[in-house]
Write a protein that binds this DNA or RNA. Structure first.
Lengths: 234, 234
DNA sequence: TAGTGGTCTAGACCACTGC
DNA sequence: CAGTGGTCTAGACCACTAA
C-alpha cells in the first residue's frame, strides 16, 4: 500500500502548489520519498486519473489548471458534497412488496421475496434535486423504516447497522422528461428535461443489495468530466 | 507499445470466451506471450478499466458478466465502434464566422477570429443518432471543407492532415429536449428526451482546438458505467 | 546535450482464496 | 498447501523536449 501513502503525500504537495506548477521529477520523488520509480509512477497515475495533475512527456508533470470534479458516481450524499452542496433526504413513502418480475431480475431474487421499497426526495442545499426509488431485499435490512432514511445516508446505515460492505455495481444513465408526479415533487414544469439513473449495487460477497431508480432535475444537475486523450481514431 | 499489442491480443482472447470464464494466470500469459508480468498486468489493466474482465484476488481474472461498455468519452466514432455500431457522418452545413463572445470564451481566442462552424448529422448503423455542432479556429485547419468531414473522423483529419495531436479536455453533460430543427433531423417527436454534450478539446500544447455541442437521441443513446466501490460515505 | 516521462525487464514478497 | 492477483524493487532503454 506504499503507493497509497505516496499518493496522499503528493495530494498535499499539489494542494500547496499553484496550477501550472511543476511537480518534482519522478526520479527525484523516488529518491527523496524512498521508493522505486515504478511505485512513484503508480501514485502519480492516481493523481492523473482524478485530474489533479497533467503529464507532458519530455517536459514534466504539472498541476492541472482546474480541479475538475465529478466524473465517477458514488452515492448522492458523496456526489453533492463533492460539488460543495449540502445533501439531504425526505422520505415520501415506504412499504414492503413482493419483488415481482422486474425487481426479481434486478435484485436477483425470487419474485415472491419481500422487497423494501422507499421513495425519497433528495435535497441539495434544502431544495429538491432528485427523486429516488430505492429497492432492497427486506431480509437484508430487518427493522429498517422510512424514517431511518430521512436525512441519513442509506450507505452509512447499511454499513454501520447491518455490516453490509458495498463493493461495486453498474449504472445506466438515460435522458428523460418528468411526468406529473415527478414535476410536482421536484417543483419543475411538466415534461422538463431530466436524467434517469438506474443503479444496481453489489455487496463484497457479490449479492445484489439495492436497485435504485433516480430522476434528477436537468436544470440543476450537470455532469462534468475530464476527457482522456482520444485514442488513435482511425 | 508492447502492452498495447498484448491488450489487443487479449481482447480477441476474451471475445472467444464466455462470461465467467477465467483468463490464463498472469504468470502464464507472461511466459507464453514473451513479456514480463508487469507488462502483462498493464495490458490486463486496460481490459479491467473498460470493463471486459474482472480480477478476483487470490482466485483469478475472469471475463465480465456483461461487456458493460462506454464509460469514458472519446470521439463519436470510437464510442460507436465500442458499442458495436458502425459510425457515420453527414454534413448539414458549414461556414466560417467570427468567433463572437460565446465561442471566443470557449475557444480562448479573440472574438474577431474566424471560426469554422460545421453542423453534422452523426449516424449509427446508417440512421440518425446525434447532431453535432463543431467549432474550430479557422487558422488551425486551412482548406478544410464540410465535405471533408462527411463520413470521416474529424480527429483523424486533424492528426493526419494538420498534425494536431489532441491531449485532453473537458466535457459537460446535460439533460435536454429536442427543438423543432433537431427533431426533424433526428427523426423523433418534438420535445423528445435528449442528451446535450458540450466538449472542449485541447492540443498537446494546451491550445483549445475544438468546441463541440452535440445533441444525442435519448431513445437510442444510453450511458452504461461501472460503479467503483463507494467511499467511506460518512 | 541533459533531463523528462513512457515503457519494459526479471526477479521478489505479500495477502488472499481454495483445496 | 499451492496458486492467484497486488505490490515493490533497481535497474534499463526509448522518444521527446528544451537549452
Amino acid at each position: 500500500m506504499k503507493y497509497l501513502r505516496l499518493r496522499d503525500h503528493l495530494l498535499e504537495v499539489v494542494d500547496g502548489l499553484a496550477p501550472g506548477d511543476p511537480l518534482p521529477p519522478e526520479r527525484t520523488l523516488a529518491a527523496t520519498l524512498g521508493a522505486s520509480r515504478m511505485t512513484v509512477r503508480k501514485a502519480v497515475d492516481e493523481l492523473v486519473t482524478i485530474g489533479h495533475v497533467v503529464r507532458r512527456p519530455g517536459v514534466g508533470t504539472f498541476v492541472a489548471a482546474k480541479h475538475s470534479q465529478g466524473l465517477a458516481v458514488t452515492s448522492f450524499s458523496e456526489d453533492m458534497r463533492a460539488r460543495g452542496i449540502a445533501p439531504g433526504a425526505r422520505t415520501l413513502a415506504a412499504d414492503t412488496v413482493a419483488a415481482g418480475p422486474s425487481l426479481s431480475r434486478r435484485l436477483e431474487v425470487s419474485p415472491a421475496v419481500p422487497v423494501l421499497r422507499v421513495r425519497r426526495l433528495r435535497l441539495a442545499d434544502g431544495s429538491p434535486m432528485a427523486i429516488e426509488h430505492l429497492h432492497v431485499p427486506a431480509d437484508l435490512v430487518p427493522g429498517l423504516t422510512g424514517e431511518d432514511l430521512t436525512g441519513a445516508s442509506f450507505y452509512a446505515l447499511l454499513r454501520e447497522r447491518y455490516g453490509v460492505r458495498l463493493a461495486g455495481g453498474e449504472q445506466v444513465l438515460e435522458a428523460t422528461v418528468t411526468d406529473e408526479e415527478e414535476s410536482g415533487h421536484l417543483g419543475v414544469p411538466l415534461h422538463s428535461p431530466a436524467f434517469l439513473f438506474e443503479r444496481t449495487t453489489r455487496s463484497a460477497e457479490g449479492r445484489a443489495v439495492e436497485f435504485v431508480r433516480s430522476v434528477y432535475r436537468g436544470d440543476r444537475y450537470r455532469i462534468v468530466s475530464p476527457i482522456t486523450a482520444p485514442r488513435r481514431g482511425a
